[in-house]
Each structure stands twice: as structure tokens, then as C-alpha cells.
């Protein structure tokens, strides 16, 4: 049965996480995203829960190159369907025009979830078998949940 301590030890030993905060899930390197999911699946986190992407626009004068250019932060959650229902959440950061490895080959449920995040936030997944929009019509322009997308963007002739 997976435990939080085990998850913590895994991240510290194999994925170089040193900062832990009560309020933020651990942040790992984007290259390790797929590997971590694979390891966790082997360790019993077999229920795919969610992926959430959020857009952070670039900050002028920031020291970190990623912060200066703007990035997308993804949080992924997996659960173990055991008695304690342990939840593992981690974050990764990808640049706005970079791609992240898809989890579809591990979790079939990632298919639609990643399509949705692509549709709404505009994060691209490398190796996704079906990279279409999910919610909005195929010919839609822009990604509504980005910061620079106005909520009341018109869409003639309907609105």
C-alpha cells in the first residue's frame, strides 16, 4: 500500500526534489515527467485522476529565463485505489512553445484530459495520438484559459 513517506522518499532520491512546501506540490524537471508517472504506476498508483495546466505570462526583467519568457505549469495527479486512497501530485514547468511527453501510453484516460488542456490552455504533448481540440470547435482561434485571452472575445455571427 503506497504511503506519503514512500512518495516523498522517491522524489527526493530519484528526482532531485529538495524543496517541500505545505501549500505547493513538488516541482520536478519536465524531462522526468513521464518517468515519474511510470514509476508511480508500478508502485500502485493506477488510478488516473487529473492533469491541470495553468498559463503564467512572461515577467519582464526576471532572472530565470523561463519566468521571463512565460511558461505553463502542469500539475498531474494519480491515485492508488487502495484503503488509504493515496494521492500523488507533482508539478512540471514547460516553456510556451515546448512540448511535454504524453502519458497516453501509460494511462488511456490521459488522452481526453491532455486534449482538453491543449484546447483550453494551449500546452502541447509530444506523441499524443490524437492532438485535436476537445471542447471548442476545431476551427477555433486561441486558447481561452491563457491570460491574454479576453473572456468576452466575440465569435461572429453567433456572439
Amino acid at each position: 500500500m503506497p504511503t506519503p513517506e514512500e512518495f516523498r522518499a522517491l522524489l527526493e532520491d530519484d528526482f532531485g526534489v529538495s524543496e517541500w512546501s505545505e501549500k505547493q506540490p513538488p516541482l520536478i524537471e519536465a524531462v522526468d515527467h513521464h518517468r515519474l508517472a511510470e514509476v508511480l504506476k508500478e508502485r500502485g498508483y493506477t488510478l488516473y485522476v487529473f492533469v491541470v495546466a495553468s498559463h503564467r505570462p512572461g515577467v519582464e526583467g526576471a532572472e530565470d529565463a523561463l519566468t521571463a519568457a512565460g511558461y505553463i505549469e502542469l500539475a498531474t495527479g494519480l491515485r492508488s485505489p487502495t484503503e488509504n486512497s493515496q494521492l500523488a501530485i507533482w508539478r512540471v514547468r514547460v516553456g510556451l512553445d515546448e512540448q511535454l511527453a504524453t502519458l497516453v501510453d501509460l494511462f488511456a484516460g490521459a488522452d481526453w484530459q491532455e486534449r482538453e488542456q491543449f484546447d483550453l490552455v494551449g500546452v502541447r504533448f509530444a506523441g499524443h495520438p490524437d492532438p485535436r481540440r476537445l471542447m471548442l470547435p476545431e476551427d477555433w482561434e486561441g486558447h481561452p484559459l491563457r491570460r491574454d485571452y479576453a473572456i468576452n472575445t466575440p465569435h461572429p455571427p453567433w456572439r
Binding site: A30, V31, H33, H34, V92, R93, V94, G95, E98, Q99, L100, A101, T102, V104, D105, A126, G127, H128, P129
Partner: peptide, 11 residues
């Protein structure tokens, strides 16, 4: 560098 995380599209 996240682009190196791309995997072959054999998913």
C-alpha cells in the same frame, strides 16, 4: 529543456 522529453509517437 522540455523538448528533449519528447518520446516517439508509438503511444
Amino acid at each position: 529543456s522540455a523538448s528533449s522529453a519528447a518520446r516517439p509517437s508509438s503511444a
